[in-house]
Amino acid sequence: MNKRIQIGSAFLAAFPYTIPIFAGFVFLGIAYGIYMNSLGFSAIYPILMSLFIFAGSMEFVAANFLLAGFNPMNALFLTLMVNARHLFYGLSMLDLYKGTGKKKFYLIYGLCDESFSINYTVNAPKGIDKGWFMFFVTMLNHLYWVIGATIGGLFGSLVKFNTEGLEFVMTALFVVIFIEQWMKEKKHHSALAGLGLSALSLIFFGGSDFIIPAMIAILGVLTLFRKPLEKVEVAA
């Protein structure tokens, strides 16, 4: 198969998996653009920030940084805290991203929640190059987000129909992906630990501070029970 056809078929294979993200990102992107607009920023801000930062929740926070006053170190540390979960995505993708060549840089650059969950759980169809498949999943997601932010920034004030609740599409996506992963694995210790420890952490620490304690708890429990869990892995 020549290279062009190979790349084209990877694009066609990747596209259907990104349709739900299209709905979610265009909507959230528009919401983000409208939000920036309402804070008094011109459309160029959401466009460039969605292009370069490409981390949804962080961009809403970043808008507040811009209003709060010049404090770069504070911005850096808060970003590290909010986005610390990406560290776990990276550790999970170490093997899958191996051998993807020059695409690897962009794959890591665009490793957002949605790209991670699709690329980790979906096996590329037979005969499709996994590297290009993951590349297009990442790129399409990125594109949807920028399109949404652009529309929102430019025309945000004109949206009239009631979109309240549409943002739930992202929660729905994560639930579906969690179930897909659940049905794939024989033992659910790790999934249950992630769900339970994060829920406990949310109850104890509250919405804005729960991620880091949850990550530490997950890491701690998975490390503590490495021996029995590894047996499960080998048996599975």
Binding site: F88, S92, F116, F178, S190, A191, G194, A214, I218
Partner: peptide, 10 residues
């Protein structure tokens, strides 16, 4: 980690 992180995401 992936299974646990997907739980965290929810």
């Amino acid at each position: 980690l992936p299974s646990a992180v997907l739980g965290l995401l929810i």
